[in-house]
Amino acid sequence: MRRAAVEGASIVVLPESALGLWTPTVEGVWRDELHGVDITVIAGAATVNARGYDNVMLAISAVRADILYRERMPVPVSMWQPWLAWTGQDGGARAHFFANPIVELGGRRIAPLICYEQLILWPVLQSMLHAPEVIVATGNGWWTAGTSIVAIQKASAEAWARLFGIPLVTAFNL
């Protein structure tokens, strides 16, 4: 990130879950490391509460760290488990279906897409209705070793960007 800032980047994008669980301690470490560096990092994390968790993208700089985006459509069954609430249990990722189809960062309108959202129609079309300037697509592929899942996600994100004629920024971990 420091090298990217020296080379003129103002924003760096890291993959889904790159930060792990987002806590005040993790925030402090990142903000301290970014002290004196004029850059914003967009990175994935999980924020946990008593009911479950949110899969998020954060915007972090030396002066602040904010949740930029909450995933609208987590992977059904493995992440999003709505039946838990129906049975009075807590857990699983929350789905923010109609929230934040675009976010603004550095004066640019961004269509954020985390992992599974790159493969399905709803999040993409909802974002495109708000005329974003760029798609930021992140993913977490460490668990897919030996499969073509990450390649399919990347191809899907590239196809959406071409279809709507807007730039694409991706960040995947393997």
Rank of each mutant, 00 (worst) to 15 (best):
Q153K: 08
A131R: 14
F172I: 10
A171L: 11
W30D: 03
Y116Q: 11
D38M: 11
L119W: 01
L174C: 09
P112R: 08
V6C: 13
L168Q: 00
E104H: 09
F98A: 11
E33P: 12
L19N: 11
I67T: 11
P123Q: 02
A5I: 10
P132H: 01
G106R: 03
M1T: 09
L163Q: 07
A18F: 14
G20P: 08
N100Y: 02
G28Q: 13
S156Q: 08
I39R: 00
R70E: 06
G106K: 01
E7I: 05
V48F: 12
A131T: 10
Q81A: 13
S17E: 13
T40A: 13
W80I: 12
G92R: 03
L129I: 08
N140L: 15
W142V: 11
V29S: 09
G36T: 10
G88I: 13
F164H: 11
R108I: 01
A5M: 06
M73A: 14
T147L: 13
I152P: 05
V12Y: 02
D32M: 12
W83T: 10
I135C: 04
D32K: 15
S10H: 09
L129M: 14
M57V: 06
Y69F: 14
G52R: 06
L84C: 08
I149K: 15
A95R: 01
T47M: 01
S78L: 15
F172E: 09
G28W: 03
R109A: 12
A95D: 01
R94H: 10
D54K: 01
G8N: 07
R3T: 15
N100K: 04
P132T: 00
A4S: 10
G28D: 14
H130R: 03
S78D: 03
